[in-house]
Structure formats: C-alpha cells, structure tokens
Write a protein that binds this DNA or RNA. Structure first.
Lengths: 246, 246
DNA sequence: ACCGGAGCTTTCACTGAGTGGAAGCCGGTG
DNA sequence: CACCGGCTTCCACTCAGTGAAAGCTCCGGT
C-alpha cells in the first residue's frame, strides 16, 4: 500500500466513528474525510463498507449518520444500557420521592459519561445529555467518581488546569484534593453551584466488588436545596445498587 | 497477505462486533474467534486495537465486552437515542394516563428493534428488551411498521414462514396481507394475544416526511383490555410525535 | 515434582487488500 | 457554457495484515 505508514485500517475505520459528535451527528463525505484526517477515496470506500453493515446510514441528503446497528451493538455495553437497566427502578424511586432530576454516570478516562437521567418536568433544567461527557471536578457525580478513581487518574486531573464554570467551581488543585478526601470520608459529594449558579447536586457512589463503578445523584434548584435531607436518600440508592452488583 | 481472499479487514472487525449478543455479552478470545469465524491470532490483534480505542473492554476475567466508547458513539444514532429523546415526554404522558407498558420501535431490515420501553410496575410483564429485536408479524408495533414498509419488504416477510407464538398468531400470508391493509386503512394496529396469551397491544405509526419511521404502542393485560378506548390515545401520541418530526 | 492440555500471545515470511494521486462525473451557479 | 465543489471510479504500487507454527502461562491431575 501507499498509505502513510503506521496507520492501520482499523484505526482509520475508528477515526470515521470518532468524527461524529453530539454537535454534528450528520456529516457529508468531505466533512467526514476532513475530520478523520483521511483522503477522500479512502473514506469513501471504508464508509461504504460501514453502511453495508449498518454501522453508518446514508440519508437522502447524502450525509452519513450513525446507524441503528451500531446503536444495537452499543446497547450491549455492560456499563451502558446494562447499568441503566439495573439502575432504572432505583432512579425512578428516587424521582418519585423527590420529583427532582436524577442522574447516573460512570467515569471514562478523565471525564464522566452520563448513562441515564430522569429529568423532572418541574425540576431545574440540566444541560446534560444521555451519552454526553463532562469534566470530573465540578458535578456531584464527577466528584464521587474522581474521589474513588485510581490515584494516577486523580493525579492527572489535578495536574491539568481545572476549568471554571461558575465563581464557585473548585479550580485550585489543593482544595480539590481536600474536597475528594472529604467525599471519601463522608461517603457522598455535594456540588453547590459549581456547574451553574442555579443548581446543587448530591451524589453517592455505586460499588461493585472491583471498586466504585458508577455514581448516582440528585440535582435540585439551589434555593430549594436541603443537602442534609437529600444525602441519606442518595446514599441509600447507591447502597441498594451496590448490593445489586455483587 | 495470506488471509482467505475476499474478506476485508473492516468486515473482520465488524464480524467481531457481530459476535456479541444479548445472550452472550461477554466472550473469551476463543469464543470470539469461533463466533466470528476467524483464526485466533487475527482476532487477538484486531480485538487489541478495538480495546485500545474503547470499542471493546477486557475484564479481569480476560473476557471481552462491548466498551463504553462504542455505546457513546451508538448513542448518536438518530434512530436510536435521538428518537428516544424526542419521544420520551410523549411516552411518559401515555404512561401517566394509562399506567400500562409503553413501547417505541423502529424497523431494521425484516425485524423490529425496540428503542425504548416504559414498563409499568403493575402492568403486564413484557419480554422485550431495549435494543432487542422481534419479528414484524406479531406485535402491534410490528404490524404498523410492516404495514407501512416498502412493498418489497412486505413481500419478503410474507414469503418467509411466519413464526407462531400463540394459537392466535397470524401465520397465514393471506390473512396477514388483509390485516396489513386494515392497519393502513384504520391508522392503527391491534395485536390481540398474538405474542403471548395474556397481552394485547395497540400501536400507531409515527410519520416523518419520508414515511413511517417508527411505531408507538400500549401493551395491556388481555382481560383488562379496551382497544376501542386505547386506540385514540395511542394514535394521538403518534400524531404528536409525527408533528415533532417535521 | 512432573506431565498434559486448554487458552492466550508472539513470531515470521509471504502477499493481495488497501491506498491515494489523478482523472472522470454530475448538478448547481454566474 | 465554463467553472466549481463534492462525489465516484481507476489503477499501479506496496506495506499492513495474515495465519501456521512455536512459545508461553496457568491450571488440575497423578
């Protein structure tokens, strides 16, 4: 082949999938090629194969989209739909009791990924999307996941600049380090206006034999918040789910 | 290469993903190789690349599972999570009014795929799984999707043997053909004990400019069922969603 | 301690699947 | 009607990928 050496076929195919994002879920051939950093003919051939299998779909407009077949396969991810299926009843209970937003997230590398969300119609609007990512150092779920992450992960997050979302976001590595110790000690995390100035979240860990695998949280309007009352509810939900994971 | 000619790298990678199923979401290297019909070293190398990217994950037990990254990408599928996000509020309304099972499905080839389901805790238990597949000729959603599918799809389904689930399942092509005509005429489908002897479902189409893209249904206990009362509710939900898709 | 076997990983010489520049095609636009 | 942007096809070149075989690492049995 003439292809630039050191780039495998598989990595090219995966680069095509990487090109899609929540902000641009439909791409033309040229956009796809540009985002994947690959020559047009290459993308054309690889994409055709993906369409034939169902990993991509091509609309009447010629744009490529993620195909249903890939969604089906993705739904087999134990940490995706698997976790969701297990957690949903508990999340619904939490919603029935509080009528606030309930969120479920896991850590992936140095970010968190939202697995499921029950958005109370009368609760604070939250900007998160199922399948979306977010930084670990601001949200309640993020703090819980970070506090129980391997030390090397914590150090990597602490070493990088901590993005500021509001004036209350913790951006000082020292303070964050102390905050994480508190989270481990008390068994839950409170993020008070650290993401948006109207919201407060209370989060608790979900443990499996191999450690903390996910976190669950309630997100409530700041002024209406009573963290002391909410913490036991969230912690209980976390414990119920932990028990289900053994 | 020495590889059996006519089999592309991409097709091998996709064969690996195909090897996973709801019944076996975790596979050892050898199982993976056997199911994909590929030599062990090949699978070893390709799987390693998929793990590096996050499409697969490898547990402490050495088994491969679908990775969270693939779930994330899959969640960008317009007909998967995209459709779900849009439909969920309406499905919840339908649930609030009826407290019965609400299902959302699309057609993929000659089967249907369940996109979302609200399982009423006191409603009939249904055997469907989000991300799962089912035949088109028995369920309410299936009949709606089949009735509005391209003619060649209908003919393929009618030509193949129609699997029987209960004594009321329609297995005669002629009867099914008439049933589909009825569904198109009245605008909804009723499947009365055609999947299990305890359940009845009422389904309605969801239309986009390009045609019927999905179906929504209520599944209720057979003895408690009042199709005449339910049909307007389900049809209204379908219409609301159709309007949202323009 | 030794053996055998099942499952995973690595090696290595060979080769055709994949590459990408270039050229063709198609539909819209000044 | 020439131009342009985006898509598709062609084709000669070559290296990424292959898979048989050998090596490795745990087992459990004797």
């Amino acid at each position: 082949m003439r292809g630039q050496p050191g780039r495998s076929v598989t990595s090219r195919v995966l680069a095509l999938l990487d090109a899609f994002s929540p902000a641009s879920p439909a791409l033309t051939l040229s956009e796809l090629a540009r985002r994947a950093g690959l020559p047009l003919p290459t993308v054309h051939r690889r994409a055709a194969e993906l369409v034939a299998w169902g990993a991509l779909e091509r609309g009447d407009d010629g744009r490529y989209r993620i195909g249903l077949r890939l969604w089906e396969v993705g739904s087999l991810a134990p940490r995706g739909l698997g976790l969701r299926e297990m957690a949903l009843p508990v999340m619904e209970d939490l919603y029935e009791v509080t009528h606030e937003n309930v969120q479920l997230a896991v850590r992936q590398d140095l970010e968190l990924v939202f697995i499921e969300r029950i958005a109370g119609r009368h609760a604070v609007p939250v900007l998160t999307r199922v399948g979306g990512r977010f930084a670990l150092h601001a949200t309640g779920v993020g703090l819980v996941l970070l506090a129980h992450a391997p030390v090397e992960v914590q150090e990597q997050v602490l070493a990088a600049p901590l993005e500021r979302y509001t004036e209350l976001t913790i951006t000082d590595p020292g303070r964050l380090r102390r905050c994480l110790a508190d989270v481990r000690r008390v068994g839950y995390a409170i993020s008070d206006r650290q993401v948006t100035m109207d919201a407060l979240s209370v989060a608790a860990p979900i443990r499996a034999p191999e450690g903390v695998v996910a976190a669950i949280s309630l997100v409530v309007a700041h002024e209406r918040a009573d963290p002391v009352a909410l913490a036991p509810l969230v912690r209980a939900a976390g414990r119920v789910l932990s028990r289900a994971l053994v």
